[in-house]
């Protein structure tokens, strides 16, 4: 079963009398364990697609199944529950709650869990932070963390509910090169552990860490192929200094 399956997904924004056809029919299937980079120029429709995949928005037409659940036509509350259960978000701007500790930020999605199961949210959040290498920073607030560390907290928050998929919209957009590679190393490590990841980037240097590249242009998929010479971010980190010198 595919984690994501869209059929002729269309999104048209109507502002006043003008219509913007942001997505003109997207057919995309993502299997479990995949690591996809969505690429495209600015305005090509990447964020619109991510919003639909992330159940933050509903398509104008077409169908969308996530983890076997049909999403199109769901109401606001059902979408919220679906996001909570099946999706982990990582944003370009980190989007952590300010003046709130890393631990509490990571606990947050579990507070909105409606399944009624009893969980030790603190222990799970601690484990997630340890998984992203921030076991020592539980009580730090976002303002006390570097950009890379903040993005790790955000990744821990996305992980903690064990979602079907992690969606990352330009996760390295606000980070310097080395930190970007560090974050990609973390994504690769998580992907090795079986987590499905879809990320949006316009940097080819970042896309090469994924397994498959989907290129969107003008609201349509123009290219969809495996990464030919896939790179290991961990390896690049080790040789980072040499590369900088060279």
């Amino acid at each position: 079963m595919n984690v994501i399956e869209t059929t002729q997904l269309v999104k048209t924004y109507t502002t006043g009398s003008t219509e913007v056809h942001a997505l003109k029919g997207i057919d995309l299937a993502v299997e479990k364990g995949e690591f996809i980079a969505i690429m495209g120029t600015s305005g090509s429709g990447k964020s619109t697609l991510m919003n639909l995949l992330g159940c933050l928005d509903t398509p104008t037409s077409g169908s969308y199944l996530i983890d076997g659940v049909r999403v199109d036509g769901m109401d606001r509350n059902a979408l919220a529950a679906l996001r909570n259960e099946k999706i982990g978000f990582v944003f370009q701007g980190f989007n952590l709650l300010p003046r709130t500790s890393a631990l509490e930020n990571v606990e947050l999605p579990m507070l909105y869990d409606r399944s009624g199961r009893k969980r030790d949210t603190q222990a799970l959040a601690t484990a997630a932070l340890q998984r992203v290498g921030l076991g020592e920073r539980l009580d730090h607030q976002p303002s006390e963390l570097s950009g890379g560390q903040q993005q790790r907290v955000a990744i821990a928050r996305a992980l903690v509910t064990e979602p079907a998929i992690i969606l990352a919209d330009e996760p390295t957009g606000n980070l310097d090169t080395q930190t970007s590679v560090e974050v990609m190393a973390l994504f690769q490590e998580l992907n090795e552990q079986g987590i499905t990841i879809v990320l949006v980037t316009h940097e080819p240097d970042i896309a090469v860490y994924a397994k498959r590249i989907v290129e969107v242009r003008d609201g349509r998929i123009r290219r969809d192929e495996p990464v030919k010479s896939r790179r290991s971010a961990a390896y690049d980190l080790e040789h980072f200094e040499e590369r900088e010198v060279a």
């Binding site: 919220a80 947050l108 909105y112």
Partner: peptide
Amino acid sequence: TREIGIRMAIGARGSD
């Protein structure tokens, strides 16, 4: 507003 957006993205309903 941003905090509300974050909360909603990770699963808060309007009622929450």
